[in-house]
Design a protein around this nucleic acid. Structure first.
Lengths: 192, 192, 192, 192
DNA sequence: CATGAATGAGCCTTCATTCAT
DNA sequence: AATGAATGAAGGCTCATTCAT
């Protein structure tokens, strides 16, 4: 994709992202100066790699977005449209409540990195296709639009964080909330 | 409740709250210095009345919370438990997407003012009672807990804000999302 | 003019201006943080009084501009138009080479403080009137425009600073340069 | 003079100077990092060729200084000492208001490159000789010293920049100002 | 009670220069 | 010779909060 970094630069890049990951995990707001200090690097180095906190956050979130996108592609091969859609959405909310880097990236209207935009578009389009298939199979009510999927996932993630609890609780809560929403938008009575 | 304010103090209190309301409405972050300047008062005066920005925000949100609480009390008198519950929840989400002061207050784990805690408890308990009645009437699935109501309302409000749109759009979107969730938690065969 | 400052605020204001005066005199660039440190005040205090370095510099320059403006008004009463004009211009260049705060303020296209604009306009208009009188008395060539006076004063001041020398030298050099220019723009052969 | 550069090094040198010329022309401050980026070269390469921004600026200014020096030599051959002197000075101010690289180089008390010092000395000495001849011919007042020529040219250029206007205006203004000064230092009764 | 000046930690960002690759 | 990553001092500015008047 991009020019490969020099070995030492790559090591610093990794160190920065790793420190940022830790900060995100402990709920500390990402501040580039702070990251630099913790990584034992000059501020300038951090700024060279990541022009803004958002760019760094998106980089931290990227692997998880990649994994979701991969899952999205795979879900499209599912023979059962409903199962494909719901499986994808469960994974998505799980990711959102599990990885603190995701919610702000998912909710942001504009992205700092083109790669983030690509990934988000990939996810959006996977969701849209999965939804269209489920609708074609008459498994989903017609008043659920593709444009509602991202907001709903963000909403559920937010609901979970308001609910609180341990990480394990949170995953379980996310499942319950998503199940309720899915129950509300599916066509046929069936068990999830 | 509290010691009545001297007339001039009361006027200042009003002026501060009114300025804060305007700031909230225009999406400006509440800064007490800023409020003081716009109100034509000294910072100290503002601090005397409101120890923190949160306290001021809660004061701004209070009337709306009062109204919701009143509606909650009234909903308890509804002969139809399902209608009572859903009416209350629709009002609640409407308020959240309509008044920018509410979402942060609703989602906060701790309150700056005792009055806010009272009001939130009042709402929570109204919701719990309405839910219990609906469940007793077998209108609602048993896996929806009282502790889920607030998170779900916050989640829907957040989903709406991610979705975006004009204020009117937002109300409509909030209705759709709440309708989906309610559809997912009700017991009876759907009517739409 | 403006609301009188509280006594302590006035003392800080004075201290800031005085520190700034010293910095200007020793040729140090005006930096508000620096001023704050030297004045033993918080940065915020300096920023409260002077929003930008330019505002502070203009404040430092103001007394000198006031004095020039006063001289300008007095020069208008001189019975000899040529003497009025040249006296005013000599004072002006003297000030420019004597007070390091003046050249940047005089050359700036836009001012930070309204008061500065007023003073500069006052000087400009005094110069214009003095020039018009001298021209009416046929003491000055008609191709010297009012709009040339400020540039010429700035130019002479700059020439002097390029020439260098002790402060006393500089005043003398300024006189020589101005004398040459005046010799070039006057109508009648006469000694300055 | 210097060791001849390898062909690629020479190409880089050219590229750097050319980029710097563009930056100067568009009024952008010369920053070596910036130059490197625009030239598609490493910073190190730029630093190898030009140790400081001043050295680069002087290199950019050099051709123009060379041309002036050449004109100075030629002016010495003019049969009319006054015409030789004034022609030289007109050229000089024109260059100063036309080429943004010159004023800072001309006004600097110390040079980064020996070559610059040579060129400036060449110009200074040409001016001194032209002035001496004009004085010998009694075309110029005796109180104008050789050491005044550079300051006066710099002063006029500065006056022009304070006056402002389009490039064409500026040349015309420069002519007027120089004409006034010359008028003030010449011995003969005026013709203009 | 009201005032608003003062505080200063804290964050952001730039850029001249060095030096490992 | 060329590269460009790294450095980190330096400067800019904001804002929540205190406290003398």
């Amino acid at each position: 994709m991009t020019t490969p970094l020099r070995k030492d630069a790559a090591r610093n890049w990794q160190r920065i992202v790793s420190v940022a990951r830790d900060l995100v995990d402990e709920g500390t707001p990402l501040q580039l100066n702070d990251v630099a200090r913790r990584a034992g690097l000059g501020v300038g180095t951090v700024y060279r790699h990541f022009a803004t906190p958002e760019a760094l956050l998106e980089t931290v979130a990227a692997p998880c977005l990649e994994a979701l996108a991969a899952h999205g592609r795979q879900a499209l091969t599912d023979a059962d449209p409903w199962r494909g859609l719901t499986g994808f959405l469960f994974r998505t909310v799980e990711a959102q409540v599990t990885d603190a880097a995701l919610p702000p990236v998912a909710a942001a209207a504009t992205d700092a990195l083109p790669r983030t935009t690509e990934l988000k578009e990939s996810l959006t389009s996977a969701g849209a296709t999965l939804l269209a298939r489920a609708r074609d199979a008459e498994a989903v009510r017609s008043d659920l639009a593709a444009a509602d999927l991202v907001p709903l996932m963000c909403g559920i993630a937010h609901a979970v964080s308001v609910h609180g609890g341990t990480p394990a609780d949170r995953v379980e809560t996310a499942h319950r909330y998503l199940a309720a929403v899915l129950e509300g938008v599916r066509t046929m009575p069936r068990s999830v």
